[in-house]
Simulated assay, not measured.
Amino acid sequence: MRHPSLPITWKPITSGLIGLALSALTISAAAVPAEARTAPPMRHSAHHSIRYASLDACPDKNVGSIPCHTWRLDLLDGGRVPLKDAMVWPLNDKGKPNKQMQAPLSVSGDGESVAYFRTSDHRLVVREFQGRVHVMPEKVLPRGVGMDDSWVRLSQDGARLVLGYTVKDGSYRARIFDVAGARETGALPAFGMFSGFSGDGSAVLVQQDTDENTTGLAVYDTGGGELARVVPPQIVAGNVPWALSSDDRTVAFVTGSGTKARLRFYDATTDRTGGSVRFSLPSDATVEMIDWTGEHEVTLHLIRSGAVDRVTILRVDTQTGRTRVRDSYKVRAGTYTYQSCGG
């Protein structure tokens, strides 16, 4: 089973939407409570928000298993719906399906929007939970780049979208889109790893490999303008994943484990590590994702016991270290790949 944590070589998923009930997503309008349409951003409640999305695994004589059937969305209230208009297999640079991997797909951190390539016309779209569909411009990938060399990532609130892809030298490029306007706002130059949007979606954090073979960090606004570039100390570079706060400068990361875990902070504009707070992690937990979900809150996705089918989602107060479990679940058996929503 594969679970994408960062959208460079990992795969995502998405949410069920009311309007899709009339087209490809088979969910009745009566099944979606009215309060789902007005739920506050950055907070999950027991309505039809996405917990995680997944694809089934089917046996294959050549590679063991391949993704198959339909993207399915497991919801916070226990429901499950298919996302039938999302491509299962990406097209390669020759326009042929690559059935050994799943097509790009991403769920917003609030579980209310999903981005994917549409089956009917291969357009990149973002569908809101309420049913509105935002269709991105045509030909979003350069000539010679297939969908199987690309990935997508939504911001926490689903208002921004990044489409990344691999170029011939093995580095990555990316385009940033304003979802509501369905327009490109900027592009990112070559980078080594995409770490995510800032908490409010105003900037992105990427890893930049340097000429000295060290790890660099760079922050860009959504127009592609560089806000910061720095070579962080090893304590930062060696402890991924990272999360960028809404101030577009403070990077959060975790060191240690168990009762010795610490949430630490680094300023990407001054190249200084800041304070830290002690908190407790389950002894069998590995931090797979980290997101800023409030001014003084970071949300961690934990994988338990080294198995990718057990997930615990933990909220950490960045001032006190107080923790709360937001969610905990086991991924359904027979899954090829899955992805939780972010923060």
Score class of each variant (00 low, 15 high):
Ser15Tyr: 03
Glu212Ser: 11
Val125Glu: 04
Tyr329Asp: 06
Pro142Asn: 07
Asp178Pro: 01
Arg43Gly: 02
Lys11Glu: 09
Ile18Asp: 03
Thr323Tyr: 12
Arg304Tyr: 08
Gly181Trp: 06
Lys61Ser: 15
Ala36Thr: 14
Arg326Trp: 07
Asp169Tyr: 01
Thr210Met: 09
Gly164Glu: 10
Val140Ala: 10
Gly274Ala: 11
Leu20Cys: 07
Val204Arg: 06
Gly19Asp: 05
Pro90Val: 06
Pro7Phe: 05
Gln208Tyr: 08
Gly256His: 04
Asp200His: 09
Gly196Tyr: 01
Lys260Glu: 13
Val140Glu: 11
Ala180Phe: 07
Asp169Trp: 03
Gly274Ser: 09
His296Met: 09
Val254Glu: 00
Gly158His: 02
Leu91Phe: 09
Leu314His: 11
Pro104Asp: 05
Pro33Leu: 01
Gly224Gln: 10
Thr210Trp: 03
Ala190Lys: 14
Arg315Glu: 13
Met147Gly: 08
Met289Thr: 10
Met87Ile: 02
Glu138Met: 13
Phe279Asp: 10
Leu244Ala: 03
Pro233Thr: 03
Ile8Asp: 12
Gln100Thr: 12
Thr270Val: 10
Val308Pro: 00
Asn239Glu: 00
Arg123Met: 11
Lys99Arg: 13
Gly223Cys: 01
Thr250Trp: 05
Tyr338Phe: 14
Gly196Leu: 01
Phe177Cys: 03
Ser305Trp: 08
Lys139Phe: 13
Arg118Asn: 08
Pro97Gly: 07
Asn92Val: 10
Leu154Asn: 03
Ala190Val: 05
Glu226Lys: 13
Pro33Asn: 05
Ala268Trp: 05
Val240Cys: 00
Val179Trp: 01
Gln234Met: 06
Asn62Val: 12
Asp93Val: 15
Arg160Cys: 01
Ala187Tyr: 03
Tyr336Ala: 11
Pro104Glu: 02
Arg160Trp: 07
Phe279Gly: 07
Ser280Ala: 15
Asp110Val: 05
Thr312Ile: 10
Gly225Lys: 14
Thr119Ile: 08
Ile27Gln: 10
Val298Cys: 09
Gly238Gln: 11
Glu295Gly: 09
Leu314Arg: 14
Ser15Thr: 15
Lys330Thr: 15
Val133Asp: 00
Ile313Asp: 00
Arg132Asp: 05
Ser280Tyr: 07
Val240Ala: 04
Met42Gln: 12
Tyr52Cys: 05
Thr293Pro: 00
Ala285Asp: 02
Glu35Trp: 13
Met42Ala: 11
Pro82Ile: 08
Leu17His: 11
Leu300Thr: 01
His122Leu: 06
Ala31Pro: 04
Thr222Asp: 00
Lys99Trp: 01
Arg173Thr: 03
Trp71Leu: 06
Ala187Asn: 08
Val287Gly: 01
Arg315Asp: 15
Phe253Gly: 00
Asp221Lys: 05
Leu314Ile: 04
Phe279Ser: 13
Leu244Gly: 00
Val88Lys: 07
Met1His: 10
Leu124Glu: 06
Asp74Thr: 15
Arg123Lys: 15
Thr26Cys: 02
Ile18Val: 15
Gln207Ala: 05
Ser5His: 11
Ser195Tyr: 13
Ala307Ser: 12
Thr119Lys: 15
Arg123His: 11
Asp211Pro: 14
Asp93Asn: 14
Tyr338His: 13
Val287Leu: 04
Arg72Asn: 12
Ala261Gly: 03
Glu138Asn: 15
Gly181Ala: 15
Glu212Trp: 02
Pro97Thr: 09
Ser113His: 07
Ala21Cys: 09
Gly196Thr: 03
Ala180Gln: 12
Gly321Arg: 14
